Simulated scan of single mutants.
Amino acid sequence: MNRADQVAARRPRYQDDLSRGVARFFQPRRTDCPWCGSGQLEVRLRTPDLLQHKPGRFILERCRDCRHTFQNPQLNHDGLEFYYRDFYDGLGEENLATLFRGRDRSYRLRAGAVTPYAEPETWLDVGTGHGHFCDAARAVLPRTVFDGLDISAGVESAQQRGWVRRGYRGNFVGLAGELAANYDVVSMFHYLEHSTDPGEELAAAHRVLRPGGHLLIEVPDPQCRFGRLLGRWWLPWLQPQHLHFIPVGNLSRRLTELGFTVVAEEHAEPHDPVDLLTAAWLAVSSLAPRRDEPWFAAPPGRVRRVLRGTVLAAGIPVTTAGWLLDRLLKPVAHRAGLSNAYRILARRDDR
C-alpha cells in the first residue's frame, strides 16, 4: 500500500478523534512541581506540534525552586496514544528507522561509557524501539546479552531479527516486578523525558538491577543555552512527546536518594550537533503548506503541493548553513553551555 492509500485509510479514525476536540487529551493543569512539590511555577514555552502538525497547543512550565521543566497540562493516556500514533510506527516508521540506522557510532560510544566500570553479562535497554542500540553495542560488548523493552511493536521485531535476546513489550514500571534483580546494566537513552512519572521509572530501574549493577541514562539538557536562544525551534523540546526535562543536579540527587552512587557524568560526548540544522528545518517547514496527513480533513491540492516543494527548496541554503554552524560549534559546545544532552552512569550500591 502506497503512502497516499495509507493516509486515506487512517483519515476516518483521526477525523472521528478530532470531532470530539483535543481538550479531552489533557489532564487537569498542575499547580505544583511534580519533582519537588513547589508551587512556584512559570511558563517557559508555548508551542504547537512542529513535527507532525497535529492540532493542539502545548505548554512547558518550569519550577522556580528546583528548575524542573514539565508539560503542563500533561497529556493523558488517550492524548499520548493520539500524538504518538504514526510517529514511531505506522506512517512514521520508515523515516525513524532510517534515522536510527545511521547512528551506530553513537550507539557504540554509549555502550563504551560502561566498560571502564563494569563487564556486564546482562543488559536491559528500556525504550529500545527497534533495538538498533542493542545490535550496534555487541561490537563493543560481544559477551553481553542484550534484552530490550518498549511499549511499541518494534521491540518484537527486534527479537525476531535477533538484535535482542528477549523483547519485552509493555510498561517498564509494570514489568519491574517480573524482571527484579535480573540485570547488570539498565539503560535509558532519551527515554525518561517521555515518561509520565520519571521518579517511578528510576525506582523501577533500581528494582530491576542487581546490587552493584549500573544504570545508564541519557536525556536532553534543559540547561542548554540553545533552549533559550532557539525557543520553540529547539528540537529537544519535542512537543508534545517530551513531558519532563530534568536538570542534571536534580537527577543526581534523586539517584542518590534511591541508593545509587553516581560514578560518571558526561556533557560533551552526548551532545548531538543538530540544533541549528533542525531549528532551520522546523522554521522553514512551518512556512510551507502541509503535506497530506490523515489528521487533516482533506488532501492538499496541486497548487499547495507545488508551493510546498518550492518553499522547502528555497530553505535549503538556510538548513545547510545550520548544518555547517553545528559542526563548527561542536568542539566548543560543552564549554559554551551548548551541549544539548547529558549522560549519567550510576551504580546501585545499597543491599
Rank of each mutant, 00 (worst) to 15 (best):
Q6F: 00
F25V: 06
R24A: 10
T47E: 14
F58A: 01
N72V: 03
D65I: 13
L41K: 02
F82W: 01
D49P: 05
V43I: 15
G21K: 05
Y14C: 01
V7K: 10
D17M: 00
R30V: 00
I59D: 05
Q40Y: 12
D49I: 06
G21V: 07
W35I: 02
I59T: 15
R13M: 09
C36S: 12
A23H: 05
R57P: 05
V22H: 09
A8Q: 12
D5P: 10
R44H: 14
S19F: 04
G79I: 01
R64N: 11
F26W: 05
W35T: 01
I59A: 11
D49N: 06
R64Y: 02
L45Y: 05
L18M: 09
T47Y: 14
F25S: 01
V7F: 03
Y83K: 08
F70I: 01
P73I: 03
Q27K: 07
W35S: 11
R24T: 09
S19C: 02
R10M: 00
T47C: 14
R24I: 07
H77T: 13
S38N: 07
R24Q: 11
Q27W: 05
E61G: 14
T31R: 15
Q6A: 12
R30A: 04
L45P: 08
D5T: 13
Q15V: 07
